[in-house]
Nucleic acid binder design. Structure first.
Length: 575
RNA sequence: GGUCCCGUGGUGAAGUCUGGAGUUCACGCCGGCCUGUCAAGCCGGAGGUCGCGGGUUCAAGUCCCGUCGGGACCGCCA
């Protein structure tokens, strides 16, 4: 039907008789016998010179034949990859006349209401930006598959209809027709199955897996999302990190053409101390500065007795922060959980301008200036609180002040390792698992499980890119004795463990190999590599924030007969 | 469950704070002119339940209440 793609024609094709197919992007009329018609396909746009009597309009589907020729001097369009050529004396075959689209099929639609774009997603996707995003996604999928297969991973598909499990994210339920009143769940991840594949001796499993979680949507969260899911037997943490690193870096290289440097590693503790978060954005400084010891003997009441005192120095921010802005910053810090926020502006003469300056000794003031590196015109913000609160609040303020849009280069990948085994406590005072209850403790800390569980680190790890959590994984407990100890630390007795997790752990009795794995979100990686800050832009048919699809009008009510068959009766709507 | 922003011809905006005739700008659409444009240009034209419902008022796009839709975030996402 065609000999070339619109976007691939160059001067080397001059003289060739070609046929292209596509959509009319634009028509420019110049009199009775001359019009330019730009024809667009997924590869790009090419200008065709036609007689003005031909009736083609925006988005008509056409097949155009003619001779490729260099454009006359002075008419080259440097903004177009095909801008040095045109198809001359073109004959036009209208394959389908089109109604004018509701919005322009070009970059101007970037500003169109997203609900409208989603209602006409098939038109939105016709645009070059969206075509590029779809293809970036395909490139990432392909590169990831190749990288995993080269490392001996075997692709295994796992079921979409799985049992409901009490832990973790809210699930989507699927009613059973054969057994009314019973339900399947859609998988939030293939966790159970991939570990059983290790028991089965698959050794290295991977899957580009669809996962579903019925939690509220965000710019980086959809009900349905794709993960590179992997699990490996007879490995230590480093082996998993290496294997996943290869896949991620291969994907990045396939998209950008450049091999990123090896992914650095940072302990969770260091990340919290320096960046106040477990997903640090390493593209900018503004690191948290330790001040606790400098105020060990302070008489300033707000600092005395505080667990941890830290500060950040925002260069040049003093002038832009009058009392109003500083009050707002203080409110923000309180909203984030701090008791308060101490601010100091460095005056031109180096003096500290702050309501608390008079409470600080000369040595304390000097220490603040020296450690934060504050200079004239800088703004220093200090939080004194429990360690976790201090880090968290300053980490958020650091992001507020310094964080570029997520897609701005450079790409800074980092593995966060040595997460705490337990984070916080539940309503009955029992430790809660930081990752999940099958995570292997750090070998140096396992002996602390009984005595001081909160001090135990785990072999869990996260992959972070530019402040976005791409994914997480862990080495799993394969030994039933150790698993019992962890359950004990979690306050789960043997009967409860068997009730809650028996279906999962009993198979281990038949010989579970040491194993560990990882899963990372492909939507997020693709968005970052495509330069998008919203994963909806890299998903062909996403849902809105309220979980609806304006194109298909889902979700929808169904016929009562359908519900009868499933044994389901509607309750009256709550008002 | 909560906080905030947005909703005005097909599209994007201005008008809303401070009520006074559906007013304005750009794009698109329809018709005409036009032989080298490329967001072509020029002339003319059509196109509206100001998201929806209620209230206040002599008068509501504008003020108040409710509701629906879209977005950002908190909670939530072991």
């Amino acid at each position: 039907m065609r000999t070339h793609l619109c976007g691939e024609l160059r001067t080397e094709h001059a003289g060739a008789i070609v046929t292209v197919c596509g959509w009319v992007a634009r028509r420019r009329e110049h009199g009775e016998h001359l019009a330019f018609v730009d024809v667009r396909d997924h590869a790009g746009v090419v200008q065709c010179v036609v007689d003005n009597s031909i009736d083609v309009r925006s988005e008509y589907v056409v097949r155009i034949s003619g001779t490729v020729r260099a454009r006359p001097d002075g008419t080259v369009n440097p903004n177009l990859s095909t801008g040095e050529v045109e198809i001359g004396d073109a004959t036009v075959d209208v394959l389908h006349a089109a109604t004018p689209p509701p919005f322009p099929i070009d970059e101007r639609a970037d500003d169109v209401d997203e609900g409208v774009r989603l209602q006409y997603r098939y038109l939105d996707l016709r645009r070059s930006r969206m075509q590029r995003n779809l293809r970036v996604r395909a490139t990432v999928n392909s590169a990831v598959r190749r990288a995993m297969e080269e490392q001996g991973f075997v692709e295994v598909e796992t079921p979409m209809l799985v049992p409901s499990t009490p832990e973790g994210a809210r699930e989507f339920l699927v009613p059973s027709r054969k057994e009314p009143g019973s339900f399947y769940a859609l998988p939030q991840s293939p966790q159970l199955f991939k570990q059983l594949l290790m028991v089965a001796g698959v050794d290295r499993y991977y899957q580009i897996a669809r996962c579903l979680r019925d939690e509220d949507l965000r710019a980086d969260r959809q009900y349905e999302f794709m993960q590179l899911d992997a699990e490996m037997s007879f490995v230590a943490q480093d082996d998993v990190l290496d294997a996943i690193s290869r896949a991620v870096l291969a994907a990045a290289e396939a998209v950008t053409g450049e091999r990123p440097p090896e992914i650095e590693r940072m302990t969770w503790r260091e990340s919290m101390e320096r960046f106040g978060t477990d997903k640090p954005d390493l593209r900018f400084g503004l690191e948290l500065v330790e001040l606790t010891d400098a105020f060990a003997a302070t008489e300033f009441k707000a600092f005395a007795g505080a667990g941890t005192i830290k500060g950040i120095c925002v260069p040049g921010a003093a002038a832009a922060h009058g009392r109003n802005q500083l009050d707002k910053l203080t409110d923000r810090a309180k909203q984030l959980g701090a008791k308060g926020l101490v601010w100091l502006r460095v005056a031109d003469d180096g003096a500290l301008d702050s309501p608390v300056a008079k409470f600080l000794s000369a040595a304390e003031s000097a220490a603040v200036v020296e450690r934060t590196g504050a200079a004239a015109g800088d703004l220093v913000l200090i939080v004194a609180d429990e360690w976790a609160t201090t880090c968290d609040v300053l980490g958020q303020l650091r992001n507020d002040f310094g964080r570029p849009p997520v897609f701005h280069g450079p790409y800074r990948y980092v593995w966060i390792v040595d997460f705490p085994m337990f984070v916080g406590t539940d309503d009955q005072g029992r430790p809660k698992p930081g990752h999940h209850p099958f995570t292997m403790p750090h070998p140096d800390d396992a002996h602390l499980l009984g005595r001081d569980p909160m001090a135990v680190r785990s072999q869990a790890y996260d992959l972070v890119l530019n402040g976005w959590e791409l994914g997480s994984g862990s080495i799993r407990i394969h030994d039933t004795t150790l698993q019992r100890q962890v359950f004990a630390a979690l306050g789960i007795d043997e009967a409860a463990a068997d009730r809650k997790f028996g279906f999962f752990l009993n198979p281990f009795e038949y010989g579970a190999p040491p194993h560990g794995g990882f899963a990372f979100g492909l939507d997020r990686l693709v968005a970052l590599l495509a330069g998008e800050e919203n994963i909806r832009e890299v998903i062909a048919f996403p849902k809105t924030q309220s979980g609806a699809d304006p194109m298909t009008h889902s979700p929808q009510p169904v016929e009562p007969a359908l519900l009868d068959q499933l044994g389901i009766r509607m309750l009256p709507r709550r008002t």
